[in-house]
């Protein structure tokens, strides 16, 4: 298979040609600080998303802190 024969498939070739990439302007030398900022600024998955998406999950998120505080209070009462 040669590149020419690859391009003989005009339909596929035309589709592949549509995939353009814009080259951003960036220096040759990497900057640790710039990478750190990019890492911090990049969107990440919300760890609470599975809870927020369901009604039970939202209720659980509301009650977990209350239960936690209650558990700590009870522990303190029993210790003293």
């Amino acid at each position: 298979m040669t590149q020419e024969s690859f391009k003989e498939d005009h339909h596929l070739s035309a589709k592949l040609e549509e995939y353009h990439v814009d080259i951003p302007d960036f220096p040759m030398k990497p900057s640790r600080w710039a990478r750190f900022i990019r890492f911090m600024a990049s969107p990440a998955k919300d760890p609470l998303e599975p809870f927020i998406s369901s009604e039970n999950g939202v209720m659980m998120l509301k009650f977990v802190p209350i239960m936690g505080v209650a558990a700590i209070t009870l522990t303190h009462i029993f210790i003293h």
């Binding site: 589709k15 592949l16 549509e18 995939y19 353009h20 890492f39 990049s42 969107p43 990440a44 998955k45 919300d46 760890p47």
Partner: peptide, 24 residues
């Protein structure tokens, strides 16, 4: 640490480009 992994963000709007991008 799944929540620290960056989420991929595709910034294209043209449907044809999305098609070839997705196919690749």
């Amino acid at each position: 640490l799944p929540f620290l992994t960056p989420v991929q963000n595709d910034g294209l709007h043209l449907s044809d480009r999305i098609t070839i991008r997705e196919a690749i």
